[in-house]
Write a protein that binds this DNA or RNA. Structure first.
Lengths: 240, 240
DNA sequence: CCCCGGAGACGAACGGCGTTCGAAACACAA
DNA sequence: TTGTGTTTCGAACGCCGTTCGTCTCCGGGG
């Protein structure tokens, strides 16, 4: 007896209903996270839809649900992936302020590298491995430096919040103005507009804004971040 | 001669194609903002869709676009409305720290009253009237207290960011766990779980988290906020 | 070597979203 | 009364996250 498939040609209405070899390697959670991160980095968080991620893998959105419970879980995995890039300094009691600064910048850099990740960090209780790693690292540095545990605990909380919020703002601005060089110029122009607007405000009602417009409008976001971080560490020193 | 409408009854195929008196007063931007704020307060930001707001006014989503450019503008108006509730203290150089604290709490309270509003505040450059009012007030207090203008400018920035971020986190937690009394208990249980989880972590890798779980898991969000605010003001004093 | 079972892949569809379009309804001046 | 400009709004477009049930494929037992 012959196998049917050996004798009969595939009828046209069955032909090419499925792509024969759409992608060789099978889907895995890791590959999905890779793809999601790729989309996140190149097109921003708003572009990360299940359909878009699936397309990146040459498949359909439904296929993802075999490996990932839902979009939220996928984004959590992406966030963990990003946090895993962060290196934590070994605590050295003599240099705790510098180390804290270093760690903060490291975290800030990770957020900046994958711009929109900040929008995932805010408001998610830290429970993944790498999130815990960061918390532990931050705390360890402060405790080694002699910051009282109660203060260190609150400070770790606030510092994480500050870093995430700063990155979040940065991400939103990038989302609104793009991040090409040309768009950066547009953004700078926008800042100048705002400065001029502040200066044009009625002096009787907005004396401070009008007078210090120059100081308020800060183009260099890195310097702004560093200043806030400095305020933070200065404050910690007063608790010692 | 008779008016046609006086003589002929309305033909059935024209009857009730439009609701005859769907809502007496005409749509205005104000009424739309009212409705949006109502939905925001009772059902949260995620429920604020153009369709839902329109439904609140017994009309269709398309009708809103005559008074409001798009959803973003509507949300900006809602945010302005909320900010308008905030009272700003008259600067008194002798009490600048207290006044700053007071203002921060006032802003925090406004955010808490309309929980999800914080999700709108983050990352929106302050350009509305009431947003400017707040910035001016904050700055004026610090300047009156003798904080150097450059520092005050950065600080106003950071403080706004901190308040918004704190409220944002609070809003997300409420969104996840609800805000009924019963849900508050659920949340407290969840915190206990987390504390237990921290304590169960391997001591060799997570010594700080495991040891200070008690201090890290802070149920009272008001106290947490106050602590961060205090850190902030302490820091300002070191610049004087 | 065949066949079968289970796991993975996925097209189609559901109900939601923001927004647009064009026609109907209305308010008011001429 | 007629004409005109504004307001209202049903219907539709193209997105979204998620589910369902079928289809495909591969490894292992007969």
């Amino acid at each position: 007896m012959f196998a049917v498939t050996d004798v009969l040609p595939t009828p046209p209405w069955k032909k090419a209903k499925r792509a024969p070899a759409p992608s060789r390697e099978p889907l895995t959670a890791d590959r999905i996270v890779d793809a999601a991160l790729r989309v996140l980095d190149t097109e921003g968080l708003d572009a990360v839809s299940m359909r878009r991620v699936a397309e990146e893998l040459h498949t359909g959105a439904a296929s993802l649900y075999a490996h990932v419970a839902n979009k939220e879980e996928l984004l959590d995995l992406v966030r963990e992936r990003v946090l895993s890039e962060i290196r934590i300094p070994e605590p050295d009691p003599a240099r705790w302020q510098d180390q804290l600064r270093e760690l903060a910048h490291e975290i800030q850099r990770a957020h900046a590298n994958h711009r929109d990740i900040a929008r995932l960090s805010l408001g998610n209780l830290p429970v993944g491995y790498h999130a815990l790693r960061l918390g532990e690292g931050m705390l360890a540095i402060m405790l080694a430096g002699g910051v009282p545990p109660y203060v260190a605990a609150r400070a770790a909380d606030s510092l994480s919040l500050y870093i995430a919020a700063d990155a979040y703002e940065g991400a939103l601005i990038v989302a609104r103005y793009g991040e090409t060089n040309e768009a950066a110029a547009v953004f700078r122009d926008r800042l100048d507009e705002i400065k001029a607007y502040y200066q044009s405000l009625p002096r009787d009602r907005f004396p401070s804004l009008a007078t210090y417009a120059e100081e308020l409008v800060q183009a260099d976001s890195a310097e702004r971040f560093a200043f806030g971080l400095d305020m933070f560490i200065r404050s910690l020193e007063t608790y010692e």
